[in-house]
């Protein structure tokens, strides 16, 4: 007998968000390099681009993210069908977490602390790397912590 959590909405191929996370991780690492090496403007501009992409995934939904389109167009046709689909809500929430981290870094960097750009990029890199390489979902654990802090969910 199985009693399930509420119905699962739109699904994605679980490899699609990991494919996107891999690209994001590489771009963020380049951003860290630029920021620490002193190419401040380039680092901030690149971080702004990553922030915009996170925002796209967070607010338009992971399925409409450009990396998701890339995956479906060029990668998925070369792969076997997925063993299982996963709920789009979690990877979409992960995009929101990435968006918050990078937007904070961007704002602090633009208000005169340029090192904030590579720091935010470094934090976001760790999350994206863990997602891409180890299939670890940091957003999922953060969601649980927010629930426990009483910021999400219903207290009973």
């Amino acid at each position: 007998m199985t009693a399930s959590v509420a119905t699962r909405p739109t699904s994605v191929d679980p490899r699609a968000p990991r494919f996107g996370a891999a690209i994001t991780a590489v771009v963020l690492l380049v951003d860290v390099f630029l920021g620490v090496a002193g190419a401040t403007v380039a680092a901030v501009v690149l971080l702004a681009a990553v922030t915009a992409l996170f925002g796209w995934g967070a607010f338009a939904g992971i399925r409409r993210h450009p990396y998701g389109v890339l995956f479906r167009r060029f990668v998925r046709p070369r792969l076997a069908p997925p063993a299982e689909l996963e709920d789009a809500a979690a990877p979409t929430f992960a995009q929101l977490v990435g968006f918050v981290v990078t937007v904070v870094g961007l704002v602090v960097a633009l208000s005169g602390v340029p090192l904030a750009a590579p720091i935010a990029a470094g934090v976001a890199f760790v999350a994206a790397f863990l997602n891409a390489v180890f299939d670890f979902c940091l957003g999922c654990e953060l969601y649980l912590l927010l629930v426990r802090a009483g910021l999400l969910g219903r207290r009973r």
Binding site: V5, R8, D87, P91, C137, C140
Partner: peptide, 8 residues
Amino acid sequence: TPMCTQCP
């Protein structure tokens, strides 16, 4: 939780 890729 509803936000959990490994739960289903």
